[in-house]
Write a protein that binds this DNA or RNA. Structure first.
Lengths: 198, 198
DNA sequence: TAATATGGCTAATATTTATTAGCGAAATGG
DNA sequence: CCATTTCGCTAATAAATATTAGCCATATTA
């Protein structure tokens, strides 16, 4: 990992934990293992580092939600849907990098318009568009009752997003959050899926 | 309004806009119309002001969700439910004080455990408990199909909470957010309410 | 009315912080 | 192998910031 990457890495961790204004250039440098002024050989200044982080957040967003590939196979039935969705949510919730990006965005969302936009895309548009496609696929297969896939995607994801946000600020309740999400997911299936026997 | 109150008022506005670390004691004093050192006649320090604000956020929470009174009349039908719920959401979204408290909490939620807890109560528990009671009431009246009121409250409020958060960071889309919420509310009624004619 | 408390002020301080200037070693490239 | 870029360092700076000390007028109270 190059020094330039190490700086981003250290800054992301510190910004996520203490916020942009709560983090000093010196702290970042210390984590990297260099002195603060050396940092300016790689970035123009503190704000430049933040912008680079937002760039990388956007790139990661593209890579996760930009292409059709990441939708994966359309689940065949309720059990598979729940399993695969829980895995996806669990990964999103626990992956350290994604978690830090979330924490950074949520704290700095009011700093400027660009961060506001990226936060909305991360928190709303991206996840919802992805699940809308999955749900659409399951409707076409007759697994899910006909309805507006966009709206169902919101019903499905919104509670999960809020629970993930909760587990970010109260990691001690991570388990509880996952259980909550699973209960909600079961209820979603009860409500919107066709019953194979009846 | 006493100086002590003016300080809280100014600090809330500035913290909401620029964050705690992004706000100086001098800025607060300037808005109040005094010099920075005078501020220490009223509060021990900057953090003391933040704590007082969190106190008042808790108090407001109690006043909104603590008593049974604020639930109001149980709506008689779908139209009344939508009207009264949209009004409630619209108020929550636009009231300047509530909005500032939300913005303060969301930015400072990682600062300490107490703020984490208060944020969770504000964003999840409070609203959901309130709507669970309303929904329970409508179930007892036969307006809403029998189901778990707690879970329905989540389905109902989670998308609204996310849209309100969006309108906080992108006020230019406030209208769009409200439309989105109304669409979601209609869908909620389609899904969970009994149809009076059939 | 005398004594005290309140709440403003100015001046000062100690610390933190972002950033620049400029030096030197090592890597790189013609 | 010389020239140059890269990337670390130390030293310095300028500004911001939270907080304290102590003064004085006004309000409160005994």
């Amino acid at each position: 990992m190059s020094t330039k990457e190490k700086i981003l890495d250290a800054a992301l961790t510190l910004f996520a934990e203490n916020g942009y204004d709560g983090t000093s250039v010196e702290q970042i440098a210390t984590v990297v293992g260099i002195k603060a002024p050396s940092l300016y050989k790689h970035y123009k200044g503190k704000e430049d580092i933040l912008n680079a982080l937002i760039d990388s957040a956007e790139a990661r967003y593209e890579e996760m939600f930009g292409s059709e590939k990441n939708i994966g196979k359309i689940p065949k039935d309720r059990e598979e849907f729940i399993k695969v969705t829980m895995e996806r949510i669990s990964f999103t919730m626990r992956d350290p990098m994604i978690r830090k990006i979330r924490m950074l965005l949520v704290q700095e969302q009011f700093r400027n318009e660009r961060i506001s936009e990226v936060t909305t895309r991360h928190q709303l548009d991206g996840i919802q568009r992805m699940f809308a496609k999955i749900i659409k696929g399951m409707m076409d297969e007759g697994i899910v009752k006909n309805d507006d896939p966009e709206l169902l995607a919101v019903e499905l994801t919104a509670p999960a997003v809020l629970q993930i946000a909760r587990s970010d600020r109260q990691p001690q309740y991570e388990e509880e959050c996952m259980e909550y999400i699973e209960k909600h997911l079961q209820h979603f299936c009860d409500t919107y899926m066709r019953h194979s026997m009846g």
